[in-house]
Design a protein around this nucleic acid. Structure first.
Lengths: 113, 113
DNA sequence: CGATATACCTCACCTGTCAAGGTATCTCAG
DNA sequence: CTGAGATACCTTGACAGGTGAGGTATATCG
């Protein structure tokens, strides 16, 4: 179950950006939302999540700030930037493209089986 | 142009196995055929191709033999094995699964844009 | 007080891709 | 004959992203 790590590679950043498009969020919440959207069939590993945040922030695609909750564990919120939106659009385009290319290469002989 | 290497990661083996399903073949030919099927928009890098062959052979998914052409450069032919066929089917299933999961995570708000 | 959930983080390791380099043979133009 | 180009194979080292394992801190509930 779950996706082979080699298959998700390169889509992690896109997943995160997709979520930030709908509003600022923080790590734990993004992952929870991914779990829910996929019916518990997939989740990002924490290490993957946080290294992705570092990467995206370094590239200027997201920016972060500490939330000021009165109680509970502190949360670091992330916002998608304008370049981030552009990068997201480009990555979705690339993803659609890759899907089509790969499918054309492995073209299954029949629809069912 | 071309697919980001992080996006194809994990599909290379599947691509190669897909080609071997149609009959024995050798490296150069497989790559040529991939180039053609994708209208010159994609090709595996040689280093990637040959490391994939090593990997697949080690896993018992393919086996190889030297062709005996009277003239020209020698070719190493590859055959897909029974376990290889099973692995191919499993990997296609996994790929379809991953596509659906990823799409559900990045779910675009509208069909066009 | 201990367990559980929330919430963050880092390090070392593994694996697959790829640029760069190499070898050898054949064909064809000049 | 010589050199270029295509065919055909291979290896090495660097690089990048995912991940297991470990760590910190707070709040809640029994």
């Amino acid at each position: 179950m779950s996706i082979a790590s080699d298959l998700i590679r390169g889509t992690t950043d896109m997943m995160i950006l997709a979520h930030l498009l709908e509003g600022d969020s923080y790590g734990y919440d993004i992952n929870k939302s991914i779990r829910m959207r996929t019916g518990d069939r997939f989740e990002l590993k924490e290490a993957t999540l946080y290294t992705a945040f570092r990467r995206l922030e370094q590239q200027g695609y997201i920016s972060s700030y500490w939330g000021d909750e009165g109680s509970g564990a502190r949360r670091r919120y992330y916002t998608i930037t304008a370049p981030g939106r552009k990068a997201y659009i480009a990555s979705v385009r690339e993803w659609e493209n890759a899907k089509a290319l790969i499918d054309s290469i492995i073209q299954p002989k029949s629809k069912d089986e």
